[in-house]
């Protein structure tokens, strides 16, 4: 446990602890506000009545001066005090002078990129470090254009947009925040998994024999032409499969017709990208699969 305390009390890791607490708190806040709203709606109240609660007869609009300006002023003062206390209590880290000949183990990116660094365990750098970050940014940008649901604008609700919120929470809480925490707190020397009670031993070795997908399931060498073809087939099936799955259900078909073909294709592809990560994590962790598709030029 001493080791764990050492890691979370590192000055640069303190913000992650703070971030985890804040994300937890705000997730609770958003979902409890949503539950309150949904309950009121179920009782037959209008959106406005449900959102405003017992303050429904208060004025809907207020003047910025003094109400908003006062609040901004107070927020700025509170943040300033918080920063001063933080800065007096904790010094910014400064290690020894940069030395290209001494590689620290583990070598870690800044904490907000550790989720991406964690993905490097499961995918080669060209996917984990280049393709996926770009897909994340583009995927976030297109959210407003692929969400056909006009409801739930300007208030917290779950029932009016369950799909959008579920996907976002999965992406944000699990694939981003949790992976960042894993990359920070459990990955020690050699990027080996260490539990909080374990000591980060620089000489630790984990014996792990990885196999490729076609070797494991078909006994065909992944480097062979047939093996490569099998790998390609898995990827080629994965994307249409994820896109087709919702269409089995009536609600999925309704969603698709509401979205139209282009929106649905974009949505389906992004979803397939997103779900490929937990799938590959599962294959890697439990079946020790390294690559699904091996080619002379790149591996997936």
């Amino acid at each position: 446990m001493d080791q764990f305390w050492l890691i979370i009390s590192k000055p640069d890791n303190v913000p992650i602890v703070l971030m985890l607490l804040l994300v937890g708190f705000f997730t609770w806040l958003a979902l409890s506000e949503a539950r309150k709203f949904d309950k009121a709606r179920a009782e037959g109240k209008t959106v406005k009545e449900a959102a405003y609660g017992d303050e429904a007869d208060y004025p809907e609009r207020v003047t910025v001066w003094p109400f908003l300006v006062r609040e901004e002023f107070l927020a700025a003062i509170a943040m300033t005090i918080f920063l001063f206390i933080w800065s007096m209590a904790l010094d910014a880290p400064l290690e020894e002078m940069a030395n290209p000949n001494v590689t620290p183990n583990p070598s870690k990116a800044p904490w907000y990129f550790l989720g991406l660094q964690e993905i490097l365990v499961y995918f080669d750098p060209w996917i984990a470090g280049v393709i996926l970050p770009n897909v994340i940014v583009v995927g976030l940008m297109v959210i407003p254009y692929i969400d056909p649901n006009p409801k739930g604008s300007g208030y917290y609700t779950f029932r009016e947009r369950p799909l959008a919120i579920t996907i976002f929470l999965f992406g944000f809480l699990i694939l981003w925040v949790l992976l960042t925490a894993i990359g920070t707190f459990t990955r020690g020397p050699g990027w080996i998994w260490f539990w909080p009670w374990q000591y980060w031993d620089t000489h630790a070795v984990v014996a792990e024999t990885n196999v490729d997908f076609s070797d494991l399931f078909f006994g065909i060498s992944s480097g062979s032409f047939t093996g490569s073809l099998i790998g390609f087939a898995v990827i080629a099936i994965w994307f249409p499969l994820i896109m087709a799955l919702p269409l089995i259900f009536r609600k999925g078909r309704e969603l698709a017709s509401e979205m139209g073909i282009v929106r649905y294709l974009v949505f389906g592809n992004l979803l397939a990208f997103m779900l490929a990560l937990p799938l590959k994590m599962f294959l890697r962790i439990f079946l020790h699969v390294k690559y699904i598709w091996v080619t002379p030029w790149f591996n997936v």
């Binding site: 640069d12 913000p15 703070l18 971030m19 804040l22 994300v23 705000f26 958003a30 949503a34 943040m79 920063l83 933080w86 800065s87 904790l90 910014a92 904490w111 907000y112 976030l140 959210i143 407003p144 969400d147 649901n149 006009p150 409801k151 739930g152 604008s153 300007g154 208030y155 917290y156 609700t157 947009r161 959008a164 919120i165 976002f168 944000f172």
Partner: peptide
Amino acid sequence: RWSAHAMIISVWLHMYRVFMTGSYKP
């Protein structure tokens, strides 16, 4: 340094809030 870290956190949480209130909608 701490303002920089705080800004990363606050910008993530801002996005989180805007999503949860559906404020990205038309």
